[in-house]
């Protein structure tokens, strides 16, 4: 949700460390991060901030799970062995058994890039991405439900 950005960020983890000089924070062990409707669960999350205040968030897990309520398109959720988010570009990269699901639509591949500003997904197979893919032959798999089905699944 647009309002998520203005909500406080809640973080819980087994341990944490802050490197003031390099502006890097690392949380490790059962990491749960929530901000409004956005929630992320991972084994470890590293947050680095540059001098301009741009943040690079890198999460690792078996896999990393995330989910967020979209403005008017239902709930999107995804998973991947690594998830990376750059605030300066608005790009979210899932690599390693990447999966994104929204309503009845599902995309699987070795790597998925989602542009939060343009809402465009790019799904790569393992040959190009060079990482494991959840699909049998390493190729991309995308299931898009007909809009009638989508409307019904939103009403549920």
């Amino acid at each position: 949700l647009e309002s998520d950005r203005n909500q406080p960020i809640s973080i819980e983890a087994d341990s944490g460390s802050l490197d003031q000089k390099n502006q890097v924070t690392v949380f490790t062990g059962n990491v749960v991060i929530k901000q409004g409707s956005l929630n992320i669960r991972a084994h470890a999350i590293r947050v680095a901030q540059d001098k301009q205040g741009n943040q690079l968030i890198q999460a690792e897990g078996n896999p990393v799970h995330f989910g967020q309520q979209l403005e008017d398109k239902g709930y999107v959720e995804g998973s991947g062995n690594q998830v990376e988010y750059e605030s300066s570009t608005g790009l979210v990269r899932l690599t390693g058994n990447a999966m994104v699901k929204r309503g009845g639509d599902v995309a699987r591949g070795a790597a998925i890039t989602y542009n939060m500003r343009t809402e465009v997904y790019t799904v790569l197979g393992s040959k190009i991405a060079g990482t494991a893919s959840g699909t049998k032959n390493g190729r991309v798999s995308v299931i898009i439900q007909p809009s009638t089905v989508n409307k019904n699944s939103k009403k549920k």
Binding site: P8, I11, D14
Partner: peptide, 8 residues
């Protein structure tokens, strides 16, 4: 251990 934070 047991890190909890609410960051504005």
């Amino acid at each position: 251990k047991q890190v909890k934070a609410l960051i504005y």
